[in-house]
Design a binder for these strands. Sequence first.
RNA 1: GCCCAUAUAGCUCAGUCGGUAGAGCACUCCCUUGGUAAGGGAGAGGUCACCGGUUCGAAUCCGGUUAUGGGCUCCA
Length: 646
Amino acid sequence: MPVITLPDGSQRAFAKPVSVLEVAREIGPGLAKATLAGEVNGKLVDANCVMIENATVRIITDKDSEGLEIIRHSCAHLLAQAVKILFPSAQVTIGPVVENGFYYDFAYERPFTPDDLTAIEAKMFELAALDQPIERLVRGRNEAVAFFRQLGERYKAEIIADIPADAEISLYKQGDFIDLCRGPHVPSTGRLLAFKLTKLAGAYWRGDPANEMLQRIYGTAWADKKSLKTYLQRQEEAEKRDHRKLGRRLELFHFQEEAPGMPFWHAHGWTIYRLLMDYIREKLRDRAYLEVHTPQVIDRILWEKSGHMEKFSHDMFMTSSENREYAIKPMNCPAHVQIYNQGLKSYRDLPLRLAEFGCCHRNEQSGALHGLMRVRTMTQDDAHIFCTEDQIQAEVSHFIDLLYEVYADFGFNEVQIRLATRPPQRVGSDEVWDKAETALATALNEKHLSWTFNRGEGAFYGPKIEFSLKDSLERIWQCGTIQVDFSMPGRLGATYINERSEKAVPVMLHRAVLGSLERFIGILIEEYAGAFPAWLAPVQAVVLSITEKQATSAEIIAKTLKNQGFRVESDLRNETISLKIRDHAMQRVPYQIIIGAREVENNVLAVRTRAGDDLGNMTLDTFSDRLKSDIACRGRNVFGGKEYSR
RNA sequence: GCCCAUAUAGCUCAGUCGGUAGAGCACUCCCUUGGUAAGGGAGAGGUCACCGGUUCGAAUCCGGUUAUGGGCUCCA
């Protein structure tokens, strides 16, 4: 006689055991039709899950985020079913839900082709139209292993073999296709209406490069066709913001075959680069950092002492001269310790904050390169803070404040924070790692920031906090970081004299706010869709003459503004004003100053914005004040480039 | 590094069965001297990524290399 409690607190009594779907039917036929699954006593279950005893039940439909996830998960199964029908000898492995969709990994004797993808998708639609019921079956572990072995599905058998012996194993059956799965799933394949296979990729079995490579098929799935269409359109829009495309169009940088992963910065891109450095310098000055500069090329002996040769050499470019071997620096830290080591340090000198716009080279795997986001030569806004153990918390806290101040100036409010803990390849004792990880976690908690663990992903010398931002396609890139290092100062002989006149080893904090200037600029381009706030725009205003008669006046105006410190150009070409406006709007110049006969006569500027707003006439001084206050706003209150979509 | 795909004019892209390459924009010149997102005309521009093979003949077919794109692994 189960009594079912619903989320609104109401209760319904049933004479006999009742399924989630039957509960929904009791409430209303509309809800029953929309039911995808249920949440019974806090646990997600299938719609046909039967409750024998009293329970708290929530009906899951496609309006719930869980509902959408279930749709995506069921789509992954539909994909596997289609592949097994078209390619019976393919073996199934795993098929999880990911952001916006799902994927499924298969082992098959030949690569899938784009044509196969089309055929698979067509088969999926066919199967969905059949509206096959999806049934849950429960088996003992050994029985399940035997079942998949007999099917020749060795990957599935391997997965189950790792599940505890006494655990109950659930299988899901749709048509003739049976897959191992925790569930829940939608009640029948006809509930899958809006999906699309998007890409084909390789992926290692269990994510381990030592294992064979499987073929991964990605797809996206939504509750209805409209959402799918919206998503696909949004992706298309996002691709237009790709920093690699905008980088070329706005003449910011280029890459070429002879220097893979190493950008050639053009004048406009370099302007942004310099502005970022100037901005960070201001912040460093305010926060008592000392800027230094160290060599690019340093004898390998130093890298052996620091541990880089052992743990990082696969990423290092080496060079030699006169029987000496050198490394092109991949990091600045050992060099900063050398500066620290010059002269005896007292506890009174700590914390000592050494900053450098350190240009580093890392021999990244060719397949890892990605525009400005992952390069082989980069400049970090790097600094190393030498301090005592007691000062760590305060320094980390001080840094987090700085980072948030800076990110706010760029208009970022969505920052993902992760605490990366000890990796398998590391230096230093477990005791030291415990201490360092605790210090970082405590600092984050004291700021009441929400963060997650990124276990096993710390640097080889210490744990780190990663501050990540998203690109236009929502890919996440680590930018800021702070890392505690109890090892390197000791390895490189850094010491100070403490209050009791004893020699002690300082702790070193590695930290960067922007991360690499390259990556940060890549993120900025995509965030602003190329429409940089006036603060960062390579050209802040352009003066356009309507006819050749205004050429001199236009040039005088441009010159005057330049002398006031603005980045201003003039366009005196023998072209129509419409064309000039279009050209500079496409170049995303914030302001266009139009000078025709009327403006010359009245000694005013006709100003319009790159978004197409006509600001009317104003004096040069008024314009200058306006631009000045725009610049002072930095990147706060920008609209993410949304207004500049055309 | 691994898997799949791609590489044609400065850019974006066509190019069918293997028969010596085409458009739009950009560029140069000429006309036009204009009023808020493309005024008109003409011209120039390519060892079809690179190396090799098949063929009477290769942008096209085959092999290799490099780079790029999407993933995996890795990472700022």
